[in-house]
Amino acid sequence: KFGRVHERAEGPAKILAIGTATPFHWVDQSSYPDYYFRVTNSDHLVDLKEKFRRICNRTMISKRHMFLTEEILQKNPNLCSHNEPSFDVRQDILVSEIPKLGKEAVLMAIDEWAQPKSKITHLVFCTRSGVDMPGADYQLIKLLGLSPSVQRVMMYQQGCFAGGTMLRLAKDLAENNKGARVLVVCAESSAIGFRGPSEDHPDNLIAQALFGDGAAALIIGSDPKMGLERPIFEIVTTAQTFVPNGDCHLALHLREMGLTFHCTKDVPPTIAKNVESCLIKAFEPLGISDWNSIFWILHPGGNAIVDQVESTLGLEPNKLQATRNILREYGNLSSACVLFILDEIRKKSGREGLKTSGDGLDLGVLLSFGPGLTIETVVLR
Rank of each mutant, 00 (worst) to 15 (best):
L250R: 13
R64S: 04
T241L: 08
E310P: 01
Y330A: 05
A251W: 14
Y36R: 00
L68P: 08
C278S: 05
N83R: 08
H122Y: 04
L123E: 02
E7S: 09
G301Y: 00
E284M: 03
V379L: 11
G301T: 04
S289F: 05
M66L: 03
G246A: 14
N325W: 08
V106E: 06
A304K: 08
G360C: 05
L140Y: 00
N318Y: 12
I141Y: 12
K348C: 06
V338C: 10
V338I: 10
L250N: 15
V243C: 09
A304N: 09
I15C: 11
Y138Q: 13
V131C: 08
L45S: 06
E316M: 03
K14A: 15
K49P: 04
F261S: 15
N303Y: 14
A17M: 05
T312K: 06
P33G: 10
E84W: 06
I375M: 13
H6E: 11
H25A: 05
S86G: 12
I55L: 10
R53K: 07
Y32G: 06
T374C: 13
I98L: 13
T260M: 13
L143D: 14
L315E: 06
T241V: 01
S334L: 03
K75N: 04
Q308W: 13
V131D: 11
C248M: 11
A304P: 09
E256T: 08
K347A: 00
A9R: 09
I232A: 03
F261G: 15
I341E: 08
M108Q: 13
E316F: 15
F125G: 04
H25W: 12
L286G: 07
L259N: 04
A251Q: 14
E256N: 12
Y36A: 05
V243Q: 13
F261L: 08
I345W: 05
E316R: 05
K117E: 05
L279C: 01
K117S: 12
K348E: 08
M66F: 14
R8D: 05
G11T: 05
M66R: 05
K347Q: 10
T323K: 08
H65N: 08
D247E: 08
I93A: 11
R351K: 07
F369K: 15
K49S: 02
E329D: 10
H25T: 11
A251D: 10
H82V: 08
C337N: 15
T238E: 08
F283Q: 09
I297E: 08
L101F: 01
V236R: 04
E376P: 14
N41F: 03
R64A: 00
E316P: 03
L16F: 09
I375W: 15
P269S: 11
L252M: 12
T59M: 00
Y35M: 00
K49R: 10
P285S: 08
S42E: 01
I297V: 12
L146G: 03
I120L: 09
T40D: 02
S129K: 11
V131G: 07
L140R: 03
K1L: 06
F261N: 15
A109L: 00
A322V: 09
L363E: 14
E7V: 09
I98E: 07
T121I: 10
R346H: 00
G246R: 09
V39F: 07
D88A: 13
I345G: 02
L339E: 13
S129Q: 03
L254H: 14
L354V: 04
A114L: 01
T241R: 07
W296H: 01
F67R: 13
T260L: 06
T237M: 07
K281F: 05
A105S: 05
I232M: 01
P285L: 08
K119V: 09
I232P: 02
L259M: 11
S42M: 01
S42A: 09
L94V: 10
T323S: 10
C278W: 04
F369A: 14
V379C: 12
I235Q: 02
I341G: 11
L144G: 02
P85H: 05
G135M: 14
D247T: 14
S277V: 12
P231V: 02
L315C: 03
K347W: 03
E97C: 06
T40P: 03
V106H: 06
F233D: 05
I271M: 14
I288K: 10
F87Q: 00
V89K: 14
A251G: 13
Q74K: 10
V5A: 12
I294M: 06
G19P: 06
L101A: 07
F87D: 14
G302S: 14
P300Y: 12
G287A: 10
C80A: 06
H25D: 15
P12F: 05
L254D: 15
S293M: 01
K348V: 05
T241F: 12
M108G: 02
N292Q: 00
Y32P: 00
A322T: 07
G11N: 01
I55P: 00
K1N: 09
L373F: 05
L279T: 06
P231T: 13
H262K: 14
L367T: 15
E310T: 03
P77W: 00
N41Y: 08
I120D: 00
L313A: 08
E310R: 04
Q321M: 13
T22Y: 13
H82S: 01
P148T: 07
T40R: 09
I55V: 10
P77T: 04
V27M: 00
K347E: 04
A336V: 03
S31W: 05
K49C: 03
H44W: 15
C263D: 15
L333V: 10
R324N: 10
N292D: 10
D359N: 08
L315A: 07
T264C: 09
G3W: 07
R328F: 13
Q91N: 00
M257R: 11
A336K: 00
D47V: 03
G358S: 10
G130Q: 08
V236C: 07
V95W: 12
E112H: 00
I141M: 11
I141N: 00
F37T: 07
W291A: 09
K265M: 06
I288V: 01
H253C: 11
G370A: 14
S81Q: 12
V365I: 07
K281D: 12
F125L: 12
R255A: 15
K100P: 03
I375C: 14
G358E: 04
C56N: 06
T312I: 12
S30D: 02
L313V: 02
A282S: 01
G372A: 10
I18N: 04
E70V: 08
D247Q: 04
V338E: 13
L79T: 01
K273G: 11
F369C: 13
C126S: 04
Q139T: 04
V309L: 11
L366R: 08
G11L: 05
L140E: 05
L123N: 02
N292M: 09
T127H: 03
H253F: 10
N274W: 12
V378L: 15
G258R: 04
H65T: 03
E7P: 04
R324V: 01
V379S: 14
L315S: 11
I305W: 06
S81G: 03
F125Y: 09
A13H: 00
A114Y: 00
R230K: 06
K265W: 02
A322E: 11
E284V: 01
A336Y: 11
G372W: 07
P134L: 07
S357H: 02
I15M: 01
N57Y: 09
L320D: 02
V131T: 09
L342C: 03
D111Y: 05
F295K: 10
T237I: 10
L123K: 01
P300H: 12
S289G: 07
L259Q: 14
N76W: 07
L339G: 15
G11I: 01
T20F: 09
H299K: 03
I288S: 04
E344C: 00
D34S: 10
R38M: 04
G287L: 00
L366G: 12
L140W: 08
L16T: 01
E316T: 13
S357E: 04
L361N: 04
G364P: 15
I15D: 02
G364W: 00
I271W: 12
I271Q: 05
Y138E: 15
F125Q: 00
T237P: 05
E284Q: 07
Y138C: 07
L79W: 05
E7F: 02
R90K: 14
Q321L: 10
I120V: 12
K100E: 10
H44G: 08
F87C: 12
L367H: 15
Q29S: 08
P268W: 15
R324H: 00
D47N: 03
V378I: 08
H249I: 04
D28H: 03
I271Y: 11
P268D: 00
C248Y: 11
I72R: 09
H249A: 10
G364N: 00
N57P: 07
